[in-house]
Design a protein around this nucleic acid. Structure first.
Lengths: 339, 339
DNA sequence: GTGAAAGCGCTAACAA
DNA sequence: TTGTTAGCGCTTTCAC
């Protein structure tokens, strides 16, 4: 196969200068209409593929927005990425994605790796980082957005919500539904700050309402369906049983629900059950799960909109770190509705 | 904030040439141990971040492997990406990911966009492409891998399996389990070739075994849990009912299962049910779902291994397109085990 | 609307 | 082990 043609090859073939070819590939540049058509036709015929690697270096714009999420295999984060990708697409920006497996040490390595690609902005999940990770973000010289959280000391912009408050609302709902003793199924502390915040919100609100409560913690995050089932088995074996079980995610809640099904325990009549995250399955389980919709897609979309603004007006960035608060919605459903 | 330091700045500060700094950042290059340590220390102090954008241009190596998947929000594809990412990480290669929403027109646009970044290889899901998409792949001048399928006319390498055969095995299993009339829940044709192949495998095998069968098709892929439930509702309303229902994915199967639960229909006693994909939930539902494990993670890992080989020995590539056959495993479980 | 010259920040190739 | 020179394929800048 012949060597891949470059811009000068197209220029020669079209009888114009490389600069004109370059302009022909930008939609807004000033090129004669016929000239452009001719150039694009020749380029297609020769199988020319624009080299953004060179363009990026010269123009000092990569067209990337770097993003880190804890896990690919999580519908919530996938939705956020979709929202972000779609908000960016029109602006000609591409998402460069990496996952951390819920480890801030991995996050640090990932951030460094991503910054080497010279993204125009970086979006991270959560507000907890290693010291060096945080320093890398601060010194990156590009807009930084922390999502899915409201960090106390944000690095840059924020698009998120209080996981603790959202879980607190859930506790209030269960209290109103008649529950007086609760259990919380979640992971250990390490890594998943959102999970830890939810647990904290649970504990604080349970105390405030003078409810009995207990915590069932499993290994490191994310808590799987299977672990949810194991935790529920433990809870069901206890005496007295709690009136309601709250879970760090719908996946854990679903696992817990199946354990009830296996044992012939009725949800919500024998025990109420709630999840977090409004995953697809929460709507279709029997009974459907009460959960919290954190509006994952919106988080991505609003992050994209925020960045689109910032990347337009050059200077406007360090001027004003922005905080976009998302309001999670409590979705009450059958699993907490005693008949 | 001061301007970001570049290699020459580090060189000056360390009293060496830029070339030595460059070498200090490659793990295998020949630099004095003390020199390297000094350089790395200074770089860290000055907050230097290596610019791979420039490196890529000069060395004509991007360090990217481009990957397209139909959807981010699918645990199977997420697993494949994890497998691929982990196989690549050691080789210093990064995955550049894009999703097509199950549309080969989107795929074409995506391929073009990805190729502009000059990836060192490209991995696509499935073997069906637009004409121009296929041409782009053929002319890309880099290794191409098609996955999750065994295309009749592969562009380059293949790491996949026959979706039709796998579903055929499932039909055989149900036949052996005593089913004589079957139904298949799946999507329409457009886009999801894997789904269409599974349906074809279902039909062919059902005919070969002289089983009665029917198809329940829903909108465009992916078939959701909700659609699975709707399809099952339709099937349960029919008379006579089929003995077994096969679904294009575990997600559809789970939706179908919940519909049975809602109506007090016992799976497997009243009707047998099977899915595809070995999603997490298949193990934990009540009853657990018979499914096909396509070894999604392996697909990614083996693709990574294949590419690592090809990207090492320069010439070995166009020499021999490789076909790596994955053997899906039938996972028989409670949902097809009549008591 | 188009072109010429210079250079983005690294590293290949060669030299010492 | 270290340095020098040139240049990767584009686009900025300035000129016409």
């Amino acid at each position: 196969m012949a060597k891949a043609p470059k811009m000068t090859d197209i220029a020669k073939a079209a009888g114009v200068s490389p600069m004109t070819v370059s302009r022909a590939f930008k939609s807004d540049a000033s090129v004669g209409k016929k000239t452009r058509e001719k150039i694009l036709k020749i380029a297609e015929e020769l199988g020319y593929v624009f080299d953004s690697t060179a363009s990026n270096l010269r123009s000092q714009k990569s067209g990337f927005v770097a993003v880190t999420i804890p896990s690919l295999n999580n519908a919530n984060f996938a939705d956020t990425i979709r929202g972000l990708t779609e908000a960016m697409r029109d602006k000609g920006l591409q998402v460069l994605l990496g996952y951390t497996d819920y480890s801030i040490e991995n996050e640090e390595r990932l951030i460094e790796q991503l910054l080497r690609r010279r993204p125009e902005a970086i979006v991270v999940t959560g507000g907890r980082h290693t010291e060096r990770g945080k320093r890398l973000l601060e010194n990156a010289g590009i807009p930084v957005v922390e999502t899915w959280d409201l960090p106390e000391d944000p690095v840059g912009h924020t698009v998120g919500f209080s996981n603790a408050d959202a879980m607190g609302q859930m506790v209030e709902h269960l209290h109103a539904a008649g529950a007086r003793s609760l259990a919380f199924i979640g992971g250990d502390d390490n890594g998943d700050t959102r999970g830890a915040d939810r647990r904290r919100g649970f504990v604080d609100k349970a105390r405030a309402l003078k409810l009995e409560y207990r915590l069932v913690s499993l290994g490191k995050p994310p808590v799987s369906m299977r672990e949810g089932a194991l935790a529920m088995a433990e809870i069901l074996a206890s005496d007295p049983r709690p009136d309601a079980v709250l879970c760090v995610s719908d996946l854990a809640a679903f696992g817990a629900l199946t354990e009830c099904q296996r044992r012939g325990i009725s949800v919500p009549d024998d025990i109420m059950l709630a999840g977090f995250g409004a995953f697809d399955l929460s709507e279709i389980t029997v009974p459907s799960l009460t959960t919290v919709d954190a509006h994952a897609y919106d988080i991505g979309e609003k992050t994209g909109a925020l960045l689109a603004d910032r990347l337009r007006g050059e200077l406007s960035d360090d001027a004003s770190p922005e905080i976009v608060r998302i309001s999670p919605t409590l979705k009450v459903s059958r699993s907490t509705a005693k008949r």
